[in-house]
């Protein structure tokens, strides 16, 4: 998922060992239980702050790294309509990064610290962006299905407890509806087009199927749970629930175009739960740990952007001004 909420064992241990002021904790938790939001200046448990920074930061990284696979085709979009839509769409992803880094900044970590951590590997981004966009059809599939998956995740997260993150997500979800529509439009044109167009679309779907299943993270039975993160409304739905919601919304929209998924076991049960062949979770781990087809390229390109822009940012710096964290 964009911002993963699965705790490492170490994190889980540290989280349980921090002792918070019980009175403040009680007030904080009852505020969340009442459905109220937490704002940056409020008291909050150390772990709440830490987990939010981690999640929002990962989400922000996913946006700016996510701009790269689609950027692959930005100079090759085949007509005015697609050219403008693709540039605007990739631009939006950078805009989402801007909004999300800003939300994380309110928690006390600067954008530069976050970008440093992306480049030195301390902080992750969504696995799905470590796969290549081989043909123009990948642009259609990413726009429709990767964005579709992201929207499932983001709509759920926008109901969370941290005000600035919710506000950023509200804006983001509004823009995502354009991403989805233009992606669907692109998919439909290819599916209803020439033999070649249908062939590249089918090929792209075949390649993106497993990364899409991986997108929501390991199955619930394999991932560490945190009651606390659920209670604090940092995590709002289980991986399996989100994955199921995604399949339910999008599989029929591909099937109706007479395009298939490369999985004979993909089907919806009578109880509304989708069944599918277990995607290789070892592959998922390998890619997370850097061995995906594009990990090295993505980081190299972000490093380039940082390095090439350094003199610009240095020149814009005003040494008489002192940085304070943004307000909201």
């Amino acid at each position: 998922m964009y911002g993963s909420t699965n705790l490492s064992e170490e994190d889980a241990k540290r989280m349980n060992s921090t002792v918070e002021d019980p009175e403040k904790l009680e007030a904080f938790e009852s505020r969340i239980a009442r459905g109220e939001k937490i704002e940056p200046q409020d008291w909050m448990p150390i772990e709440y702050r830490k987990q939010l920074i981690r999640m929002i930061e990962q989400h922000a990284h996913s946006e700016i790294v996510g701009a790269l696979p689609e950027g692959t085709w930005i100079t090759r979009a085949p007509n005015f309509r697609r050219k403008l839509a693709l540039i605007a769409k990739v631009q939006d992803e950078i805009g989402h990064g801007q909004l999300l880094y800003s939300a994380a900044e309110t928690l006390g970590k600067t954008r530069e610290e976050m970008l440093n951590d992306l480049l030195n590997g301390k902080s992750k981004y969504s696995n799905v962006f470590n796969y290549p966009a081989k043909t123009w059809a990948d642009i259609a599939v990413i726009g429709f299905l990767v964005d579709g998956a992201a929207i499932v995740n983001q709509v759920i997260n926008s109901k969370g407890s941290y005000g600035p993150y919710c506000r950023a997500l509200e804006r983001i979800c509004y823009e995502e509806s354009f991403h989805l529509k233009q992606g669907h439009d692109n998919v439909v044109y290819l599916a209803t087009g020439t033999k070649h167009q249908r062939a590249i679309l089918q090929d792209a779907i075949n390649r993106w199927y497993v990364p899409l299943l991986h997108f929501f993270g390991p199955p619930d039975k394999l991932s560490a749970h945190s009651e606390k993160l659920m209670k604090w409304k940092v995590k709002l739905a289980s991986n399996d629930d989100m994955r199921n919601q995604f399949l339910d919304q999008y599989v029929p929209k591909i099937w109706e175009l007479d395009i298939t998924f490369p999985d004979p076991n993909l089907k919806k049960n009578n109880d509304g739960i989708w069944e599918f062949s277990d995607p290789d979770w070892n592959e998922f781990k390998r890619v997370i740990n850097g061995a995906g087809p594009c990990n090295a390229e993505r980081i190299a390109v972000r490093k380039f952007a940082e390095e090439a822009g350094r003199w610009v940012r240095a020149a814009l710096m005003n040494p008489t001004e002192k940085y304070v964290a943004p307000l909201a």
Partner: peptide, 10 residues
């Protein structure tokens, strides 16, 4: 990559 520590104000 050199680490950046400076940042613009908001």
């Amino acid at each position: 990559v050199e680490k950046t520590n400076s940042h613009l104000i908001t």
